[in-house]
Design a protein around this nucleic acid. Structure first.
Lengths: 149, 149
DNA sequence: TACAAATAATTAGTGTGACAAATATATGAA
DNA sequence: TTCATATATTTGTCACACTAATTATTTGTA
């Protein structure tokens, strides 16, 4: 394996990740989902794990704080999420889905699961396991923390 | 394989790609390379394949035209690249590395190859082949064109 | 208690990515 | 030749990623 090969794999990885995101975003747009792929990730996690602070959410979705602040700003403006002052800690907020946010998640969830499926055609269980293992190895090589299942 | 799994893999892919880019960018910054990861990709390809138009280059690095225009703007400002009017076609430019651009590529190339290696520790030849195959399958599933080696 | 250090969130600045629309020029068919 | 169509590049707008710095508040330690 030459060093040049490593650079090529980095390129392939980047290109594929962009394609997956772009494809999903196009479908979101076509279906008038009124959220971006990243905004969806935030809504979905709030829905699954309940109210939490921005720091907790940032760790969950692996976005940095400034990025998350802006995503929350956008979701607040759309009134899918609201910032509720934390009762004990005046520095922080609890993020809650609004009723409208809950409905949005319910409505979009099945559609998005279907969109996500497309990328994985022509691959089997073994491929998925391999892929996950390799991605996690790379992530750890660069100092990332992998969560247990 | 449940639909939820597909969403998780999409997330892992995105997260890993961002990590790889972020790691490289940090190293670039630490070494005062004076270019970003994406700017480097452009310089490297111009160095390897010689002068070409922006359209050709955009196809080579899989960036869209507006994005490439802006990257070239930055590289021009830094005087690593210059736009030379195409002799026959006044709509287009030939992109040339400047002398300073050539030196930059020569100086950075070995350092960057080394940085890229880090992500791939603890993986073997078979893993790389698998990984490439899976990435390309995904890319094709979403309508992308894969190049022959 | 007092005050330095840590933490939560935001702001600012730059770069990249996607998409749509605009501009300038070239090409091909009637 | 002319005019519609195609091509090369740019501009504009919004969203996201990362860094650094800032603000407000809390915590830990002397």
């Amino acid at each position: 394996m030459t060093q040049e090969q490593f650079a090529k794999y980095s390129f392939l990885l980047d290109r594929t990740a962009r394609k997956v995101k772009q494809y999903a975003q196009q479908q979101f747009k076509q279906g008038d989902f009124d959220v971006t792929v990243d905004q969806w990730l935030v809504l979905k996690n709030l829905s699954e794990f309940g109210p939490m602070s921005q720091t907790e959410l940032a760790n969950l979705v692996f976005k940095d704080h400034p990025t998350l602040t802006r995503i929350i700003d956008l979701l607040s403006k759309k009134e899918y999420v609201k910032r509720v002052p934390h009762p004990q800690d005046r520095r922080s907020f609890q993020l809650h889905l609004t009723d409208s946010g809950v409905s949005k998640v319910t409505a979009l969830r099945p559609k998005i699961l279907q969109i996500r499926e497309k990328a994985w055609e022509n691959l089997n269980e073994e491929d998925f396991e391999e892929f996950k293992r390799i991605l996690n190895t790379i992530y750890q090589n660069l100092g990332g923390q992998v969560m247990e299942e």
